[in-house]
Amino acid sequence: MNVRFERLALTTLVMPEGRLDFGAAAGFQRHIEEVLAGAATASAAVIIDCSALDYVSSAGLRVFLLAARAAQRAGISFALCALKPAVREVFELSGFSRIICVHTDRATALASAPREPA
C-alpha cells in the first residue's frame, strides 16, 4: 500500500492509499510508529487522512487502535478524517468511531488539532 505524508507546523498528515487489509497492515503500522516517534513533542498532532483509503479490515482496525493508544500515552493528538463510505461503515459497526476521533474532512480535523504554542 502506498502512504503519503505531509507536515503542517506540528501536525503530520498521513494519507494511506488503497486497501488496508491483512497484507498491508504490518507495513502501515511501521509507517505510523515512525510518525508517532517523530511527532513526540508537546502539542503535536497526527491526522490520518483517509480520503484515498478504499477498504479496511479488522487487521487495519487493529493498527488504528494501537496507534491511537500509543498517541494517547505520548500526549499526541490523534484523529482520522475523510472516511469513504466503505471505511466509515467498518468504523461504525466496530464501535471504533466512538473511541477514535473521526472528522468529516481534513479542514475540520486541522481546525481541531492543537495550535502551535505562541
Binding site: 479488522s58 487502535l65 491511537a68 493508544r69 494517547q72 466496530s94 464501535g95 473511541i99
Partner: peptide, 24 residues
C-alpha cells in the same frame, strides 16, 4: 462478541473480524 462500548484503553485488540462479519 467484543464489548463495543469499551474505552480506547480497555478495548481488546482481537476479536473484531468475526464480529464485523456477523454485523454485515
Amino acid at each position: 462478541p467484543p464489548d463495543v462500548t469499551a474505552s480506547l484503553t480497555a478495548r481488546p485488540v482481537g476479536g473484531q473480524g468475526v464480529f464485523l462479519v456477523r454485523q454485515m
